[in-house]
Design a protein around this nucleic acid. Structure first.
Length: 260
DNA sequence: ATGGTGGGTTACCCA
């Protein structure tokens, strides 16, 4: 079973690339971020024709998250319960898997713009609310994956140039504390389960030929509960879609979970 | 050299 996450930066633009990618990397469940579509504009017909079940928490222009699954989704939850937020950044659903019911919590964490900004304050409040939500979900769902664009590079090694990034947005200690707080609940960063090549990233700025020069950050993550981390056999970004014409600025990240 | 590109929309936007 393959679990994935991908910030598509407009599902309208990226739908053909998404469908193409599924043919070369057949994932079973994927969380999408930045669909930038209202629910009525979601490409349900195209996805259903390709065999996907789906749930979408849409918003015009900004944000928007979705979960696609080869098997039906149930118990869909929109947003973080109890966290009042007009921005559509969280969706969760349960699917059946070889390991039993699997809960996928898809998140598009706030970018935060700059330390000290209102958006940064919102980011830290969002992370605190997410931690409480994940703790509650973990208690209910042994097989939990929290996947998405976290807009956090967890360590200096997750940046192409620590001298540029350390202490700045996406790399500040309060943000990293928020990320580590999720791990402290009992989740494992799938990436960290394996020896990984240096300079492994998931996002590259469109500007300054960032991808060609591998000037990236590792900010997209799949966090796995222990019952999913134990049978996990591989985890890596798939850089192929980042080489497309008109690519997303993010690559998909994929974890393979062994069947039992 | 503190820029640039690329989504979105037509907003001193958001990444």
């Amino acid at each position: 079973m393959k679990l994935a996450t991908w910030n598509v930066n407009s599902l309208k633009v990226r739908l053909p690339q998404l469908l193409d990618w599924f043919s070369v990397n057949p994932v079973d469940v994927i969380g999408l971020q930045e669909t930038k579509l209202t629910d009525d504009a979601f490409p349900s017909a195209e996805l259903e024709a390709a065999g996907w079940h789906w749930a979408h928490c849409g918003q015009k222009t900004y944000n928007g998250v979705a979960i696609l699954s080869r098997t039906p989704l149930r118990d869909v939850t929109y947003g973080i319960p109890g966290f009042d937020d007009e921005q559509k950044r969280v969706i969760a659903a349960t699917v059946d898997s070889a390991h039993g019911p699997l809960r996928y919590l898809c998140v598009y964490v706030v970018n935060g713009q700059a330390l000290g900004s209102d958006k940064y304050d919102y980011k830290l409040r969002f992370l605190a609310a997410l931690k409480a939500y994940v703790a509650e979900q973990l208690a209910q769902h042994p097989n939990l994956v929290v996947g998405g664009d976290y807009n956090i590079a967890p360590t200096p090694a997750d940046t192409h140039d620590p001298a540029t990034w350390e202490g700045n947005i996406l790399c500040s200690e309060p943000e990293r504390d928020g990320f580590r707080a999720l791990l402290a609940l009992g989740l494992k960063d799938a990436f960290s389960l394996f020896e990984q090549p240096p300079q492994s990233f998931t996002w590259w700025d469109y500007r300054a030929a960032g991808f060609r020069r591998n000037l990236g950050l590792r900010i997209d993550h799949l966090l796995l509960s222990a019952p999913l981390a134990a049978p996990c056999t591989a985890a890596a970004a798939d850089l192929r879609p980042r080489r497309n014409e008109r690519p997303s600025d993010h690559a998909p990240f994929v974890a393979e979970i062994g069947e039992r």
